[in-house]
Design a protein around this nucleic acid. Structure first.
Length: 281
DNA sequence: CTCCTGTCCTGCCGGC
DNA sequence: TGCCGGCAGGACAGGA
């Protein structure tokens, strides 16, 4: 499912393909996703030129020449794919929005579970929109360091797992990368968030950046395979240390799995957490 | 304010 | 084989 690295990968491919291009035709095949589509979506998009395309948290922002911004969230099953310009568009199940640009470029939003969202908002209103207001720092930016994270976590009684899932603390992390980062930082998902300070916070920040960068790197290969591949996560899913690996050995494990039970799976905040009780404290 | 729970949706998988 | 229940997950509303 698309978390920060997947969205980053999508935007990296989308930006050069559509920047400066004009939206010639719009196909709207759905009344909405998690939220209803904006009124007059088709009319408001057609004829507009794309100024730029960027990512914030897990959102894709496509700014248009009428000072409106098309905001997309891929939910957990959403895909935004670019169609080869030679091939005619063939509608697929769960294609909700089809954008046709000059030059034969077509972008298709497909989302089976419809957990995604689409907004069309004024450029001046992005920061105050409910999706962006109060959003925490970008984890890959330099400003996101141990000190900043420690301050954000201070006083929090909830667990570090739940806190890292909170987009107000840090933006763009989802269940998978939180589990992975906590493993690399050696921090238990059950630890109280407020106790992650100083060296621990710094170590966690490094782990977050490390796992995100690695995933983005692998996400590049996901995208290359994308046209032929059907794997949602592509390449990086084979590199998970703990996520989805309950009962198995964690990387570098030298304990007796038959006695320890290996990687443990628990539920926190209604979501699965995977961790190694011996390496994560 | 913080924390917690329910809701949305559909594909997939395990169990019978 | 086929059905069915449960699970997966991000964001957000609303209640405590």
């Amino acid at each position: 499912m698309p978390e920060l690295p997947e969205v980053e990968t999508v935007v990296s491919a989308l930006r050069p393909a559509i920047k400066g291009r004009v939206i010639r035709a719009v196909g709207v095949h759905q009344k909405g996703l998690r939220v209803p589509f904006p009124r007059g979506l088709k009319q408001r998009l057609e004829g507009r030129r794309v100024r730029d395309c960027r990512r914030r948290a897990k959102y894709i922002l496509i700014s248009l020449d009428n000072d409106e911004v098309l905001v997309l969230h891929l939910g957990m099953s959403g895909r935004l794919s670019l169609l080869p310009s030679r091939k005619p568009y063939k509608p697929q199940k769960h294609d909700h929005l089809v954008l046709s640009f000059n030059g034969g470029i077509t972008a298709v939003l497909n989302d089976p579970r419809r957990f995604g969202a689409l907004y069309l908002i004024p450029a001046t209103g992005v920061d105050t929109h409910k999706a962006f207001a109060g959003l925490g720092p970008e984890p890959l930016e330099r400003a996101f360091d141990g000190k900043l994270l420690g301050e954000a976590l201070a006083g929090r009684k909830t667990t570090i797992k739940v806190a890292l899932m909170d987009q107000k603390i840090v933006a763009g992390l989802g269940n998978i990368y939180v589990c992975e980062a906590l493993f690399y930082a050696g921090i238990s998902p059950l630890r109280r968030a407020g106790t992650v300070q100083g060296q621990k916070a710094q170590k966690l920040v490094r782990a977050i950046k490390r796992v995100l960068r690695a995933a983005i790197k692998a996400g590049g290969s996901t995208l290359k395979d994308y046209r032929q591949a059907n794997g949602e996560l592509g390449y990086f899913q084979h590199k998970f240390a703990v996520y989805g690996r309950a009962g198995q050995a964690c990387p570098g494990c030298d304990c007796d799995i038959s006695k320890t039970g290996g990687i443990r799976q628990i539920t926190q905040g209604g979501r699965s957490s995977f961790y190694c009780p011996r390496k994560q404290k």
